[in-house]
Amino acid sequence: MDRETPEHLLKTKRGEPVTMLEAISEALFEEMTRDDSVFLMGEDIGVYGGAFKVTRDFLAHFGENRVIDTPIAEGGFTGAAAGAAHMGLRPVVEIQFMDFISPAYDVITNYIATSNYRGAGPMPLVIRGPVGGGNRGGPFHSQNVEMAFFHTPGLKIVYPSTAKDAKGLLKASIRDDNPVIFEEHKGLYRAPALREVLPDEDYIVPLGQARTVREGTDLTIVTYGAMVHKSVDAAETLESEDGVSVEIIDLRTLLPLDEDAIVQSVKKTNKLLVVHEDTRTGGIAGEIAIRVSEKAFEWLDGPILRVTAIDAPVPYSGSLEDYFLPQTDDVVKAARYLAAY
């Protein structure tokens, strides 16, 4: 393509800060430019540029064979993406809101995740879309979907918390030969505090590697996504008000889970708090707790605790949703309890 890159996708080139959403757009644009086999499918991604405008101007640049507006049929186009992946293409499908991924659950879990194991070869496919609450979206536009897929061997699950990670992780996901579910917290998409200047170079963030957001000595918070930022806020409060030193691990990739990073940190701080925005029962905290029990039981100086959303559908009204979601104060309170244990 000799068409010019749309202006709004040149911010990193110009050394300007970008939002997480812009970082995701840049990742898609750069990967499509780098590799002709990468193409996009999804609802309203072409003419409209996507419900959140992640693919704005992509259709004009890449043409309708690489930016495909689909029928409203997540199962249909996700399955079609799998077929195209068999034939050597690298599809990236957008689920308009990840709440709507459920019609594709059959093809993802039965077909896509098992492909390599069944001898059908690699399945280079990314399924990405917005997740998460706090936007008054109600029960059908606010869910986190990671744990619906966490139990399915063969999938990878990625959930970035920063613009830099989002770009590098999405690029790594597109280049990965395994199917990746890529969750983008819509509350982070345009958050001003997350704007940052990205390296003006082709970089990836490898899948499966957690990041130490903040070093500390008294307790470890393992978290991901939007809760990374609430945890950082809580850690600063604890530091200034209580003199408690909190280490924060951002998982970045949920599957495969970076067990080493978690265990190493627990062996250092001897206390673990897991914070996730997803609901409580069957949340990732349970898996992390059992792994720490297996690998670092002797190092623990307190119970493993968790701060999560409550076990309910995501409510619409602000007062309800704020109560439903884990808040910074919840993290402070739980960490304070654990520090004193």
Binding site: F39, G75, G76, G79, A80, G83, A84, A85, M87
Partner: peptide
């Protein structure tokens, strides 16, 4: 489900 898969395989032929 295989209708979806074959739809994608044949889509790739067209693309």
């Amino acid at each position: 489900t295989m209708i979806e898969i074959m739809a994608g395989m044949t889509l790739s032929f067209r693309l």
